[in-house]
């Protein structure tokens, strides 16, 4: 497994200074903040979370993800969806319905305006 992994030098966006981006996209920061909030409210412990995240990462690697850090928050989001479902906080069905609603809202919104659910 390790034989095919690139070295740190081959990582295209390796930040070596103090100002390296920590979130590449806003949704990553949102997913992070949601997780921290639910944890702080006691919905799950941090070790519980870490275990679930590690399991997602391990599964992704087994599925061929080279795991260069850029997919990290995708695994994070999957773990978050999993933990809220298993804790009966948000069900997968609710997610499907809500996603469709947001998708419709996005398509109904002229480009450049904030997207809101009606």
């Amino acid at each position: 497994m390790a034989a095919n992994t690139p070295t740190i030098d081959e990582l295209p966006s390796l930040p070596r200074d103090e100002d390296g981006p920590v979130f590449r996209e806003p949704w990553e920061a949102q997913a992070f903040a949601i997780t921290l909030t639910l944890h702080e409210q006691g919905h799950f412990t941090w070790p519980e979370w870490a275990e679930r995240l590690a399991a997602e990462i391990t599964a992704a690697q087994a599925g061929g993800d080279p795991d260069l850090g850029d997919t990290y928050y995708l695994h994070w989001l999957k773990a978050l969806e999993g933990i809220v479902a298993s804790k009966d906080i948000v069900s997968p069905d609710e997610m499907v319905d809500r996603k469709a609603a947001w998708d419709r809202a996005a398509h109904a919104t002229p480009h450049g305006e904030p997207i809101v659910l009606r």
Partner: peptide, 26 residues
């Protein structure tokens, strides 16, 4: 088209966040 577009990932995060807000958890 000239309408807005959210990626599947963005939709997932938005959906999760808005559901949690509706439930008063976030």
């Amino acid at each position: 088209d000239d309408h807005s577009h959210l990626s599947d990932t963005e939709l997932r995060v938005r959906s999760l966040e808005s559901l949690l807000v509706d439930k008063g958890l976030v």
